[in-house]
């Protein structure tokens, strides 16, 4: 099973009622897998006419209280931003998987992390947030799916799983099992037909003076709760480190290899790996910057998450960047060289 198929099966195990999607490389294995498995489970699969339609089908299913998801890759995710904004305004849960490829424009189909800004800043119009998960292995991608559905339902938000072409295409051993989910609030807002109750309305239009401001502030309170409760982050040998490398997703596993090699050479290196990209582990990074050390951010882009690291470090330490855009994948050796140079070790 490749990453795309594994995430699809994991979504099914997590109780996904409906999948809607439109073909785009490198995530085509997701709709192909769903088209076979969802009917077997008596659930819904629809190949939509566009990504616009796909996200709005998710909107429709979600408005009735069902667990719905879509997946796409960068250009398709751009088209979905309209729907994600409406989902956010209407406070509907949704899970969106972005198997990132190179951009801008049609770009290429190589792995990339160039959609970090789009994912973590909301992406569409208006004052909203989406929860963004950045797995770095196929197992973590699998584990992300039930978490994504639970977070979406708990906070009535869009949760984006930000993978890339490598994670989607690669195979590695995984364990797929049903785990106990979170206790979730009842969906008493869902549109189910107004039987024995008042009419439910799902909307994002708030025309009267002050009404939208009230909604935005309600959303803000919710986002603060998410920031307080849901940050996920992994770190390794930061305490005595002279240099801390920050990376997420596939870049983070390459960094892990480079940092281990650096330690072998006697360089005091550590790493921090944000798993939730929003909410961002600002606190962890800020604490790491309380002691003077160099921060190196590695991304498969020309520098996006590095801005969040700088915001977290708030000038307490130098934050440097190494990136490979447009489908380039940094190697362990490249990153190790950066670590050596920044710690003034001669190149070997």
């Amino acid at each position: 099973m490749c990453g795309n198929e594994a995430l699809a099966e994991s979504a099914i195990i997590a109780g996904c009622d409906a999948y809607f999607g439109y073909p785009i490389t490198p995530q085509n294995e997701v709709p192909a897998y769903m088209s076979r498995r969802m009917p077997e489970e008596g659930r819904v699969f629809v190949q939509s006419e566009s990504e616009l339609a796909a996200i709005n089908m998710v909107f429709g299913a979600s408005a009735t209280g069902k667990r719905a998801m879509t997946s796409s890759s960068s250009p398709g995710i751009s088209l979905m931003q309209e729907g994600i904004s409406y989902l956010s305004g209407a406070e509907l849960p949704a899970v969106v998987v972005n198997v990132m490829r190179g951009g801008p424009g049609l770009g290429n189909i190589a792995p990339s992390q160039a959609d970090y800004f789009q994912a973590t800043r909301g992406g569409g119009h208006g004052d909203y947030r989406t929860i963004v998960l950045g797995p770095s292995s196929v197992q973590e991608l699998v584990d992300c799916m039930p978490l994504a559905f639970d977070l979406a339902d708990q906070y009535r938000m869009t949760v984006m799983v930000l993978a890339d072409g490598i994670l989607g295409q690669m195979m590695e051993p995984v364990v797929l099992e049903k785990k106990k989910g979170r206790e979730l609030p009842p969906k008493d807002w869902a549109l189910t037909g107004a039987a024995g109750r008042k009419q439910n309305i799902v909307r994002s239009l708030w025309l009267p003076e002050g009404a939208l401001e009230e909604l935005n502030n309600k959303l803000l309170d919710k986002y603060k709760q998410v920031e307080k409760n849901e940050v996920l982050c992994e770190e390794y040998e930061v305490d005595d480190a002279d240099i801390v490398v920050v990376a997420y997703g596939v870049a983070a596993r390459i960094v892990r290899g480079a940092v281990s090699r650096a330690r072998e050479e006697g360089i005091k290196a550590g790493w921090i790996r944000p798993i939730t990209l929003w909410p961002f582990p600002t606190g962890q990074i800020s604490r790491a910057a309380d002691e003077f050390r160099i921060f190196l951010v590695v991304e498969m882009s020309n520098g996006q998450m590095v801005e969040d690291v700088r915001l977290a470090v708030t000038g307490k330490a130098p934050v440097l960047f190494y990136g490979r855009p447009g489908g380039g994948v940094p190697t362990v050796d490249e990153i190790l060289d950066q670590i050596r140079q920044l710690t003034l070790r001669p190149k070997t």
Binding site: F59, Y86, L191, A194, Q199, N200, V202
Partner: peptide, 8 residues
Amino acid sequence: DVDMVEVA
């Protein structure tokens, strides 16, 4: 007075 949604 039925369940309704307003969409894009």
